[in-house]
Design a protein around this nucleic acid. Sequence first.
DNA 1: ACAATAACTAAACAATCGGTTAGTTATATA
DNA 2: TATATAACTAACCGATTGTTTAGTTATTGT
Lengths: 187, 187
Amino acid sequence: MARKKEYIEEEVIEKAMNLFWRNGYESTSMQMLEKEMGINKFSIYSSFGNKHGVFVESLKSYKQKVSKIFQKLRDSNNGVEDIKEFFYNSVDVTKKPNNQKGCLVTNTYNEFAESEDKMIKEQMETFMKNLKQIFIEKLRMDPNKNEETILKQANYLLLSKHGLAAAARVNTQKEIEDYIEIIFKNL
Amino acid sequence: MARKKEYIEEEVIEKAMNLFWRNGYESTSMQMLEKEMGINKFSIYSSFGNKHGVFVESLKSYKQKVSKIFQKLRDSNNGVEDIKEFFYNSVDVTKKPNNQKGCLVTNTYNEFAESEDKMIKEQMETFMKNLKQIFIEKLRMDPNKNEETILKQANYLLLSKHGLAAAARVNTQKEIEDYIEIIFKNL
DNA sequence: ACAATAACTAAACAATCGGTTAGTTATATA
DNA sequence: TATATAACTAACCGATTGTTTAGTTATTGT
């Protein structure tokens, strides 16, 4: 029928995701996206509608990227110890390609905290809910914990994880390690 | 010599501060500032130089505003328990005027994490350093803690406070209370 | 090989950004 | 009261924002 696309949407979205991860939503312009994604505005708009659409797809791409770490946590069987391992994995900067800092979801959560963007907020909610559910399952592996304690501690871990992701952007590796150690002393 | 100013700089800066607090730096435009401060651009620029200048003064205004809570913490004598009280005070939304969320310093810390703005970064550093020093003094009130433990726990509290301020923007009062309780469980 | 059509380029769009400036108004001092 | 001068209004600046569109190029099915 007609001409082929000269780019793969999944590939250019991953590049966009890295840019959003580094700069946040507002600070990332269409010009920057053009350059980073290697395609021009027309292609971006025809593939993803608008800037917001690029961002939503980037978030999905990010979720897919971290789903491996999530799956590893889900599949493990050492309870709280696995969560600790998960915390360490999520701040391991050596694994991150371009000096990426923190967690894209947490950054987005913060940047959109006062916004009314339903689509983004919904994505955030489900992400957090999933994570909390995994925490609950891991905590249940300890027969000494009752259900009330488990729910409280899951909440505690969720907020700690949020704080950790925020801290990962500004604090040193050493400070973060000390932080994680004490987090899990309280469980 | 000449005409009098029709506004008080401290007053309009407090209004600007509330706007920055709600929206962050980038998302706050000069137009919004004009409206909120009740004066026009010329006056803003003649009093504060530029947008950045308005923000720096807003940060100072914020520091002054929270200095009472800081002083209360400094003056108290119950060690860790006072820090816990301080944590509760800093998230007490009922005391906040216009649905303000979180802490302006922490929001700024996050927003400027990847920036090279030395003036802002320096303000952040001194703020955090002061807070950490207060934590250390409170922790030293416990004779059972050695100096190494104190430093680690001060770090832990600083990052927890950071996470708390971030969480205060998106989480419920209940979740936050659970979080604070567990933070102080083992200190 | 040709016509249909989708993907490309590049220029332009209105709106908004932070910031400036020419011209007017008010006031303290002389 | 006259004058110097600071504070005001409001229009305007160039640059950049996200988005659109007119015109060109490449590929496909017939």
